[in-house]
């Protein structure tokens, strides 16, 4: 089933186009990561599909319109910051959410145990640390066992331990087979959790597809030698290897999948160049991301 479908969404703030002709299609079971630098329109997009921002043109449909106006009760979402009543404790805040969602038999203790907040269930929300607030927000999204979860930069502003905790919780949720839509500018996060990604910049969706397909076959190589000048020459002559950047102690290059490390080593040794550093690895999402966003810059 198609969970979310947007077609030609437009939204601008004055002259700035925050979302420009956005077409997204998210199917059941996808863990979709919406990637993009700060200010690329991720939060605006989520705001529009959650009904709290007005949009200028286009349209979107949730759940193929099965639930009509009340579709948001089938979605658990946090947008930007965790929003709760500061003078109420965790349980009271969750009670309000379940009343809004029309859920009657919520097990608050289990929910709070899931996010490791049970020991603070009677403290006021205002006394929580940012990480605890974020975790309470994640607990709130689980109320009523929704079909779709939306997280907007869930690890923003947390300390390393908090990031690790939140990530673990997210991974656990993603593994249950629910549809998750997650916006983030931290690629590592998306790479670890998501099955599909969409890359946004300046309100335009540049690319989207499964994480595996986004990464091309080319390998990324780091080759170092005592004589870098000779190495540069030798690599320039070598087939299937292109130097992309020079570092103080090694050269960075993209390598075709057909070229193996031992082949590079042998060819260089034949030219009397001996490597002291040789790494070939699969390109990571981060590099792909930078490449895609760079391409767009150069087009402009």
């Amino acid at each position: 089933m198609e969970v979310l479908q947007t077609s030609h969404l437009h939204k601008s703030y004055g002259k700035i186009k925050a979302v420009n002709d956005l077409n997204l299609s998210i199917h059941q079971g996808m863990v979709f990561g919406l990637l993009g630098p700060n200010g690329s329109g991720k939060t605006t997009t989520l705001g529009i599909i959650l009904g709290i921002l007005q949009f200028d043109a286009g349209n979107f449909t949730w759940f193929e319109n099965q639930y009509g106006e009340k579709h948001r009760t089938r979605i658990g979402a946090i947008l930007e910051t965790p929003n709760f009543y500061p003078y109420l404790n965790a349980i009271d805040n969750l009670k309000i959410v379940s009343l809004i969602k029309g859920v009657e038999d919520t097990n608050y203790d289990d929910l709070l145990k899931l996010v490791d907040l049970h020991h603070r269930k009677d403290s006021k929300f205002s006394s929580y640390s940012l990480g605890m607030k974020q975790r309470l927000a994640i607990a709130a999204t689980q109320i009523g066992n929704p079909d779709v979860l939306i997280f907007d930069e869930p690890t923003n502003g947390l300390d390393p331990q908090g990031i690790a905790e939140v990530r673990q919780i997210l991974k656990r949720i993603a593994d249950t087979g629910k549809t998750v839509i997650m916006a983030s500018h931290i690629l590592d996060e998306v790479e670890k959790i998501c099955s599909h990604v969409g890359i946004m910049k300046n309100g335009v969706l540049l690319a989207s597809g499964p994480v595996g397909a986004m990464l091309n076959d080319k390998l990324l190589g780091e080759i170092g030698s005592d004589d870098l000048i000779a190495l540069t020459q030798a690599l320039n002559d070598m087939e299937g290897v292109t130097i992309s950047a020079a570092r103080p102690k090694f050269l960075e290059c993209t390598v075709d999948a057909s070229v193996s490390a031992s082949k590079i080593n042998r060819l260089l040794a034949e030219k009397n160049i001996f490597v002291n550093h040789l790494v070939l690895r699969k390109q990571r999402l981060e590099e792909e991301f930078l490449e895609i966003t760079r391409k767009q810059n150069s087009v402009k």
Binding site: I52, K70, R72, T73, I75, A77, N83, F84, A140
Partner: peptide, 14 residues
């Protein structure tokens, strides 16, 4: 100011 109005709508109220 607590942004709970926004959250109420996100949570499913019209």
């Amino acid at each position: 100011s607590n942004r709970t109005q926004r959250q109420a709508i996100i949570n499913g109220m019209t």
